[in-house]
Amino acid sequence: MQDTVKAWLENGTIDVFLGYKKVDNHPLPHCFTKARLEELEDLVVSPDRYPLEKIATHMTTAKPEVKIGMLARDCTQRALNVLYIWNQLDPEKIQTLNVNCCPSPLKEKADCSYLRPATVGDYKKEKGVNNAALLEQLSEYGQEERLGRWMYEFQKCIKCYGCRNICPVCFCKECSLEHEDLIKTGALPPEIPVFHLIRAVHMAGRCIDCGLCEEACPMDIPLRLLYRKVNDIVAQVFDYKTGTSASQSPFNILGDSVTLEPKPIQLTGTDS
């Protein structure tokens, strides 16, 4: 791994390499450069994850011509695909060094250390939403109970924006979550469920199920589960699996055919 990166840096394939450096037993994201090749000795594959591709996006915004190499798990690859589609990164300028990845519905066999068994307390299981639950399990609850459980989770929110700030595919210059006409400001918890719903809607066609948002959430709100539902609906309604390819997504080009009918009003059914 070190040799590959060293060669890339030396022969000009890339200008910088984003990986992890071990500092006092903590793997921290680090930008390796040709000027300091000796640092490559400390390059590690970290079980803790940071959105390296987000760092790449910021770098590119500041310096569009920079060629970036990075360690990439499957989730990194999916995020890169999304970032290519949305013109945030140029595939010509990105070089990935692939490493082991985490299990996800998109790739079930993986050996990454992520998804350590999460401990979910009994009270949370009783009142809230179990972070480890499957989507099918949630549909067993009635409407009212489901609402109560999600609202329990959302009420914990301290509006730290950790979910957004860690998200590799959140790149908007202006964020709707900070728009005072859309979400009331000045109070904790933030306006719920609108705050979380807006973010969920914006995850359609973007979320690549890396789970970083849920890892970052100080209040353990099951965000990954919520956005998995988003991906589920996107797959059903738009026939699109976010992040699986870098070709165009139904969210940034116009669809030319659709077979769906709007859901009828059950009361009268007068609708066409």
Binding site: T119, V120, G121, Y123, K124, L188, P218
Partner: peptide, 19 residues
């Protein structure tokens, strides 16, 4: 606590959720 020491509030809620 959630407003002034949010990461301590996180511990409080975790404790609560554990019982």
């Amino acid at each position: 606590t959630t407003s002034c020491h949010p990461l301590i509030a996180r511990r409080v809620l975790r404790a609560k959720e554990k019982g």
